[in-house]
Amino acid sequence: MEDDSSENEELWKLSVDGSSCVSESGAGLMLTSSDGWTLEYALRFGFKATNNEAEWKALIAGLTIAKHLEVQKLETSSDSQLVVGVVRGEYKAREDTITKYFAHVQILKSAFQVFQVLKVPKA
């Protein structure tokens, strides 16, 4: 019997959350290595965005950072039902903007050997 623990040893975790209000939008990201090394980011976008756009931008920023760090195995979590549903293929991207964000995520996720996206409850 093979030991699967080495597979999880390299698994990084990315938590993303986008936010928007009347005048501003931004995102929070937390990227954690398998050995507990953590990077935290707070991003302020220089443009007004909907909450869905902020959620997509948060995911794209997190994936970009993980790619530049040469992460190979990534588990991503988001509280956005739309983002998680589209990335998993459970929902279809219908709006032009969402389609473009999804296409960007598809390109970024191809950089990882393992890529998972999980829906977490809003907290």
Rank of each mutant, 00 (worst) to 15 (best):
K48F: 08
V117H: 06
Y101A: 04
K109E: 07
T50C: 05
L82Y: 04
K57D: 08
A42T: 13
Q81T: 15
M30F: 01
A49L: 13
L82M: 11
S20H: 01
L29M: 06
L59V: 12
V16D: 01
E9W: 10
I98R: 04
E24T: 12
E53I: 03
V87M: 06
N52I: 05
E2Q: 14
L63Q: 01
G28D: 03
G89S: 09
L43Y: 01
E75P: 00
G36Y: 05
M30E: 14
Y41D: 06
T76M: 10
L108T: 02
I98S: 08
H68W: 05
S34G: 15
K73I: 02
A111S: 15
Q81A: 11
D17P: 00
V84T: 09
V105M: 04
A111K: 09
F47Y: 13
Y91K: 09
Q116C: 11
Q116H: 12
T99R: 15
A66P: 00
A54Q: 04
G46D: 13
M1V: 09
V87N: 06
I107E: 15
V86T: 13
S5P: 04
A93M: 07
A103K: 13
K13C: 08
A54W: 02
V120I: 15
H68C: 08
K92I: 12
A61I: 04
Q72W: 00
Q81I: 11
L108D: 03
G36H: 05
M30W: 02
S78D: 05
T99C: 15
L82N: 03
Y101I: 04
L108W: 03
Q106R: 11
V71L: 03
K119Q: 15
L39Y: 08
F115P: 02
S20L: 00
K67Y: 01
I60N: 04
S34R: 11
K57R: 14
P121M: 07
S33V: 01
K73V: 00
K48T: 12
H68E: 15
K119M: 12
A42G: 13
V16K: 01
L108R: 02
E40I: 09
V16G: 01
G36R: 01
G26A: 05
Y101R: 02
F45N: 02
A93I: 09
G18E: 00
F47W: 10
F45G: 03
I98A: 12
S25A: 15
V83D: 04
T76V: 15
L14F: 04
E70C: 10
L118Q: 14
A93W: 06
A61S: 13
S110L: 11
S80L: 06
L59R: 03
G62K: 05
L14H: 02
M1H: 08
D3F: 09
N52D: 08
R88K: 15
S20R: 03
L69R: 11
M30K: 11
F102S: 10
E75C: 10
R94I: 08
S15R: 08
